[in-house]
Design a protein around this nucleic acid. Sequence first.
DNA 1: CTTGACACAGTAAACGTTTTCTGATAGGGT
DNA 2: ACCCTATCAGAAAACGTTTACTGTGTCAAG
Lengths: 348, 348
Amino acid sequence: MVTIKEVAHIAGVSIATVSRVLSNSDYPVSQQTRATILKVAGEVGYSPNRAARSLRTERSSLIGVILDNFSSQWAPVIVRGIQDVLLKKGYFTLVVNIPWEKHSRADVVKDLMGHSVDAFVFVETWYPVRERLDMINKKPYVIVHRLFHESDPHSIIPDETYNSSLVVKHLLDLGHEKVAYIAGDANYFSSSQRLGAYLDTMRAAGLGIRDGWIAQGEWCIPSGYQCAQRILSHVEMPSAIVAANDGLAYGALLAVLDAGLKVPDDIAIVGYDNNDISCISNPTITTVSLPLFLMGQIAAENLLCQLQTSDREYAEQLIPGELIVRQSCGAPEGVEVYARDFLRATAE
Amino acid sequence: MVTIKEVAHIAGVSIATVSRVLSNSDYPVSQQTRATILKVAGEVGYSPNRAARSLRTERSSLIGVILDNFSSQWAPVIVRGIQDVLLKKGYFTLVVNIPWEKHSRADVVKDLMGHSVDAFVFVETWYPVRERLDMINKKPYVIVHRLFHESDPHSIIPDETYNSSLVVKHLLDLGHEKVAYIAGDANYFSSSQRLGAYLDTMRAAGLGIRDGWIAQGEWCIPSGYQCAQRILSHVEMPSAIVAANDGLAYGALLAVLDAGLKVPDDIAIVGYDNNDISCISNPTITTVSLPLFLMGQIAAENLLCQLQTSDREYAEQLIPGELIVRQSCGAPEGVEVYARDFLRATAE
DNA sequence: CTTGACACAGTAAACGTTTTCTGATAGGGT
DNA sequence: ACCCTATCAGAAAACGTTTACTGTGTCAAG
């Protein structure tokens, strides 16, 4: 690689001057020399040696991104949002996948510190890495998360309460009064938040909830199937089911269909997450989409802000989602919609 | 951060000795001093400064991974395969998403060179970055790709021909003799490879193909829908349809169902890719899964090999896929299977 | 005419490693 | 007793930057 030395030699100036021009220092350099240096640097294809720069400045232009499940439907979108902002500012990201079980979690933080990353982003991984808090606290960081909740001012979180109420209200607007609920895994904070939003919305509308209408599920399709069966077996059947995520909703959909009922005519179903599953299933499932790309962008902006101004007051940010109306609660749509939805989901 | 200097001081030796011990050099160091150095290093939590090391050795322990669409269903799995191998060897990956349209492609390679990455992996992005070949050629690199084909000895490619024949043969084994085909976008090399495998397999079995049985599609659901409609309108209807990917297969499935026919009873359908869509649809779709995680692992192993032995002969590697039998061609399965498949697809 | 300020450029030190070179000690063969 | 070799340890240079410091020359204010 061509070094600053060669550029300086060709341009007939000292390396200090070249450095000042090429690192956008605000040190005064005459327009004349500045121009020739830029010209020479461009011609010889100079690119600064990041290792040397990093060694000297103790900044690396590297951001560590630690996430739990890389091949989930959410993580990559968040990461792209993060990169969308950071790449433009000259930052690269070191994306590391920490499987939940692995004991190597703590080491990852240490290793990333070794690479002197300038900051951290934790996507759903705050809980397991807290044991390295002493290290992490030395750098700016942001937490992007959904399922767990530990109050931390650096957090960017979907507004679970608002989002869940969106989808319940939608059912009420359509005239439903007997609405059942399938909850997510009780260990997750978001489960209780979503359930709470359902309860509050029903109460605010003055609607009652029968005993067997709330089923405790576990985030997955079979669980949704079983929960729906339990709900359907209750003496007074609901006219609609709210599921805590799209997997549960899809399971419920299968159960309702298997019971010989029609969706949405006999029972309406809504989900949460805007998972692929909700726009591929037949009928497609009304759900709530989370602005994951945006959340990534916000996380990155937040980080840049921290990197520039060292001292600042932080506060949790709650990000609202968007209601996606599909067939499972009564909207009339054709096959083109499947496709459009699916393509949008995979393309952007 | 604590430096090598402090470790040396505490251990009462020179920094040279510390370096030799901690960087696993094979320079002779007495067991005595080696032990004390390791002890001290552990106690003070020493972690080498990568920038300094990188500056000196011109190696960074960083691998640049450039891919096209980060939030596709394939890319993250490949990346995880890559990281699975590389992380264990102490390498981090700089994963960068280059959208197809962006003109900034070339700069990414340059910037990664600036970070002195030790090697490159191109996932589906070989075509656009070739203009930086002069730079890339200085480092080891591997190409992981599917859709395009430029012969290059550093390639790791799914064995499209073998994989496609798997699924066609499966239909023939089930007794089908009238098999139609929906092809992918004609611009893609893999389209013609898959089509070729279909033609060859049919010919080898001595089976004829009617004129209207081969439809030219475009990789997406609506296209599959239209192609299937065209095929169904032909005077002699096939008993099975092979689609070049799962999107097309799903579109075809919808068209067949809309035509009042049953799947698989009246018409069997098979896809390709083992996309989520194929295990969520109703009925689920028989398809071919590509060993993406494995391909990532192989790519990384290949890279490590190149990094160790500078000179070596390379050859394209063709990776076989696996037939995934589901409902759309006659296998009897229940609702549990949807769930099991889906969970497996998202979990691992 | 002096003084101070300012605009600009260069010198050299420093960042934390790795590695070459030099040196010291010990042991073994003659 | 001598030399040679092997084993170990340290001194110091080098990697490519950034930046504090020093040194010019110019120009305006006194």
